[in-house]
Amino acid sequence: MSDTLKELLEHGPNAVNIGVQDFADSLKAQGAEAVQVNWAPPAGGDAEMIALLDQLL
């Protein structure tokens, strides 16, 4: 088990939220650390191209 997983279980989430902002807000409301990434789909939203690049990398 990595130190990050140990740390997560012992002290709870210190989170980076990518997507629905409510999830970050509810973490903060419970006293957890959370920051939000202002995610947007890549220009044109070409998910297939991203998947292809991921496989190549």
């Binding site: 997983l5 989430p13 210190n14 989170a15 997507g19 970050a24 998910a47």
Partner: peptide, 18 residues
Amino acid sequence: QPLANLAVISVPGAYAAH
């Protein structure tokens, strides 16, 4: 937030794995 230990991901499924 260098001590972050969790990413919470709820973007559309086509982008989530990335």
